[in-house]
Nucleic acid binder design. Structure first.
Lengths: 168, 168
DNA sequence: TTCGGCGATGTTATAAGATAACGCCATGAC
DNA sequence: GTCATGGCGTTATCTTATAACATCGCCGAA
């Protein structure tokens, strides 16, 4: 996903954007990152990653499972998907949205970032953001209280620009 | 929970603090708030609230269910607990921790706040914070992107002061 | 080449979290 | 007293996630 593939709306991709490009791009970067790290992006894991990238909406593990079963032509066990997702999350290729029990492709794998999301309750899209002010504010308050941060989670529910325009 | 019932450690209550006081206080404030609002804090709901306040650790609905069943001396249905929790969350007396699928008593019911938590992965305690900088940062970035916020969720996982001291 | 080891995957079963549909009953308004 | 409303009980079911164990296949060492 290059900068200009989501030209105008800001965080949440346009309806009309070239999503095939998003997918291809995500897979390419995953290949590169895993090669670099010596991590094994197996066929299964790669396919799960592709299915996570089906859209910019967070997807449940069982939705991915269904797709996978269909593609394979045979029933796949939940664990298969969960294991692949676990790997992808560890590698930073996928994020888990805690408030939705769902998974979404990472917009900037490789970069250090903390997993902040704007989640539209109307269209279901989720946009990853990485705002230094939020990160800093969390860091500051944690430091003030002697709390050692390992994993900050920020998930902001609300309504995206597009959906506000549609139902004013 | 008055200011001095958690004297020194900051966000996460001391091990030695007077927790009975926390519970009594929480129930009193719940009574007052519900009376003020004309909301019905029934015996069941009040008991669930009390069970949520068992400790400062977020508790799962099924843990509460077990306690409740034991108290009542008969099996209670999950729905009973979920309905009570739904009421309590609506009234702002209890928060749901999305990243844990668990519930915790609100430290400042009645006040406007957005549900920010420091969650210790070692001892399991969770401290509610309401930092204006975090709130402001979220508000700013949302405004910049035309995103209308309805429910911000901030859950910071990490290690609290006490647990850092114990395992340095 | 063969062997051994380790990580990935398959299989089966089950735990944990949450909700739907329906009906009864207590409470408060009139 | 009657009625409407909301709270609660019961049963069934759905979604999400993990445990335990077996097998497969790749890769390096002998």
């Amino acid at each position: 996903m290059t900068a200009d593939s989501h030209p105008t709306t800001g965080p949440i991709p346009n309806h009309g954007h070239d999503h095939a490009h998003c997918i291809a791009d995500a897979l390419m970067r995953a290949d590169a990152l895993c090669a670099e790290r010596g991590a094994r992006l197996t066929a299964l894991r790669r396919q799960v990653l592709e299915l996570v990238w089906t859209s910019h909406k967070p997807r449940g593990a069982y939705a991915i499972l269904e797709d996978l079963s269909q593609r394979e032509g045979k029933a796949t066990a939940p664990l298969t998907v969960y294991r692949a997702l676990e790997f992808l999350v560890e590698q930073g290729l996928v994020h888990r949205l805690e408030s939705l029990n769902a998974y979404i492709g990472c917009a900037a794998p490789g970069a250090v970032h903390s997993g902040q999301f704007l989640v539209c309750e109307t269209c279901g899209n989720a946009a990853e953001i990485d705002d230094p002010r939020i990160r800093a504010a969390i860091g500051t308050i944690a430091a003030e209280r002697g709390f050692q941060v390992s994993r900050p989670t920020v998930e902001v529910r609300g309504t995206c620009t597009d959906c506000q325009e549609k139902t004013p």
